[in-house]
């Protein structure tokens, strides 16, 4: 051992050189993509399987980012959907410069707090007024409608979910376009809703889709649920029916906040229309 120490101290320059040279080369190879490519190519022949395993592992670590990007892309794709574009066919012969206007914008957000078992349920999402969310906007997810924004801070928003005694959204039967409105069912089951005030002329069938009507916060045709039972109390002049909600509120992760641009521009557009006439 003593001889070893003597040996090392005698040639200390060389050992110091080794330490620093290896350190700097490691830094260099790690930080330079060109050299890294050369390095990995040669190393792969020896440890290809190991790299594959490590890559698999790192893939799991980045799942969150991947999810985020996919959710963002969904929102982007929704923006290009036909249902989010206001087809201005009625006034096309008057307004000649535009055929389509973007009516709905979608802002993707993550649900950071959620409840389904209270009398009045709210959920909190991680986007706020800084990201363009305002009070009264509708909230949907990929399965259907979720609720509407009732309170906005800089970076967070409180959403009154459909599972709320005061929630009421305009809806229609998907097949024969009969209008009604959707509420949460009285027995506080998070999977059930009630479609109310449908005209007596409608002939709804069990299993028929109920979708948004396009008259309120949401674009037309966003699913709400399927009719599960036609025998419900109340009614009289109109039909009430029970629906199974398509959204599983207990498992919400990503939602899209609907920004209806048309609601702000409506008055201006109408004024323009009159002027054109």
């Amino acid at each position: 051992m003593r001889n070893l120490w003597i040996f090392i101290s005698k040639y200390n320059a060389f050992f110091l050189f080794l330490i620093f040279e290896v350190t700097s080369l490691i830094i260099y190879v790690k930080n330079n993509s060109f050299q890294r490519a050369e390095f990995i190519n040669s190393a792969n022949k020896v440890t290809g399987g190991l790299y594959a395993k490590a890559d698999e592992f790192y893939g799991y670590l980045s799942l969150k980012e991947v999810n985020d990007s996919l959710a963002r892309e969904n929102a982007h794709l929704r923006n290009t959907l036909k249902s989010s574009v206001y087809a201005d066919t009625v006034t096309k012969h008057k307004v000649t410069d535009t055929v389509y206007k973007q009516q709905y914008d979608y802002i993707v957000a993550r649900v950071i707090n959620n409840s389904v078992n209270h009398n009045n349920n709210y959920l909190t999402i991680n986007k706020g007024s800084k990201q363009g969310i305002a009070k009264g906007m509708g909230v949907i997810c990929n399965k259907g409608i979720v609720g509407k924004v009732v309170f906005v801070s800089d970076h967070f928003s409180l959403v009154q979910s459909l599972l709320h005694k005061d929630s009421q959204f305009s809806a229609m039967l998907a097949d024969n376009k009969e209008i009604g409105h959707v509420e949460w069912s009285d027995d506080m089951d998070p999977h059930k809703g009630i479609l109310k005030d449908v005209s007596n002329n409608a002939r709804p069938k069990v299993g028929e889709w109920v979708v948004t009507s396009g008259y309120s916060l949401f674009p037309k045709g966003v699913p709400i649920g399927k009719i599960s039972s036609l025998r419900t109390k109340g009614g009289g002049y109109s039909l009430n029916m029970e629906i199974t909600l398509s959204v599983d509120f207990s498992k919400l992760e990503y939602v899209n906040v609907v920004d209806n641009k048309f609601s702000k521009e409506q008055e201006a557009l109408e004024a323009q229309q009159k002027k054109d006439e």
Binding site: F17, F20, E21, S24, L25, I27, Y28, K30, N31, N32
Partner: peptide, 11 residues
């Protein structure tokens, strides 16, 4: 170029 000049300087 992290590491490049460092390695040359150590040599």
């Amino acid at each position: 170029t992290p590491g490049l000049h460092a390695s040359a300087c150590v040599i």
